[in-house]
Nucleic acid binder design. Structure first.
Lengths: 188, 188
DNA sequence: CCTTTCGCTCAACGAGTGTTGACTCAACGA
DNA sequence: TCGTTGAGTCAACACTCGTTGAGCGAAAGG
């Protein structure tokens, strides 16, 4: 019945994938501490010992699960910058990748997730700062980044109803002037 | 030397206070999961069993530790509203109360802390919405609240250097136009 | 064919956790 | 003065967790 016998390499690849998917989902929902190897194994329909054998430790499993693709590069104008930030909002609304949610969920309580978050946010700040023509560009970039962080936390993790019951377009429309106010200009 | 004998009631009061202070500090630094009853007891120079005897369970100790004083009331204009938000920033910068930090630290990973955070943020949203003359007042209030949440998380919990190395006044000055943009007016 | 490799499971260990009950002893009340 | 209360301690239980090592059975390779 459909249960084809797979070559070893392919079988391994699929099992690893199932474990990583299960780990990402649980880390994203519960955070590092409340997620147990046993629960991951059960969700992946696998023995707990296999998870250890493949990933070494819970810590390394977490690292693999939250490994994130570095953001793009390229010169930006201030306006493009705002639209890009609001664009990530679109992604966030629908389905921010489980790996990012997993990192965010644990960033306040798991030291390694915190370090990872600082690095991701830091590089986003660097990127934004390049596009802001002001001597306090880094501070402005940091404020824009933490603003988006707050929205993501409130919407995705705390699931505030006031944000959940409206469309991403409406949020983007209201947020645009607030971000624009930070993109530069001495009167800002 | 100086170790006066205290009446029972006073002695109890002080011991409870020491335990609560230690609990708040540890919950604020480590979050709910990583904070152990034993560590709280050690920091309070007390036996772990006494913590249980006084507070019933780790859960109830946490509830007592994060119990927060409800925010003030009163009518506000839109401008006063922005200044009040930026004012809480001043408090946050220096020493946001340990009880609030404890709640925030755990709000992404501890269900009860999440519920408490939703309630606190929700009542702040209600309060702000009353001062905003627009039909999407609640959404605007929610955005302002999550913006401040993002700043607090980035500054107090993630300790982003870009925010830590500047004064609260400078942050307030840059943030003011962004918040003003949300206080009302059909032009967004 | 036989041997080796390896995906995978089983059972267990050791450490740390929240929590409990029996106990000690000084402050209290009559 | 004497029994009672209650603050505080000690040792342990029951449980869960991450982690490990031995072993099984099928695929791989010659």
């Amino acid at each position: 019945m459909g249960e084809r016998v797979l070559p070893r390499a392919e079988r391994r690849r699929r099992t690893e994938g199932k474990i990583l998917d299960a780990a990402r989902a649980l880390f994203a929902e519960l955070g590092f501490e409340r997620t147990t190897i046993r629960a991951v194994a059960k969700a992946a329909e696998v023995d707990p010992a296999l998870v250890m054998q493949y990933f070494g430790s819970k810590q390394q499993l977490f690292q693999q699960a939250v490994r994130v693709t570095p953001a793009g590069d390229g010169e930006l104008t201030a306006e493009e910058l705002v639209e890009e930030l609001l664009g990530t909002l679109n992604v966030k609304m629908g389905a921010l990748p489980q790996s990012s949610l997993a990192m965010m969920r644990s960033m306040l309580t798991h030291p390694e997730a915190a370090a990872s978050a600082r690095q991701v946010l830091g590089s986003q700040i660097d990127r934004l700062a390049e596009a802001i023509p002001a001597d306090d560009a880094r501070l402005r970039a940091a404020l824009m980044t933490t603003i988006m962080l707050g929205i993501a936390v409130g919407h995705q993790l705390l699931e505030l109803e006031e944000l959940r019951e409206v469309s991403q377009d409406e949020i983007a429309r209201l947020l645009r002037p607030s971000l624009r106010a930070l993109t530069g200009g001495p009167e800002g």
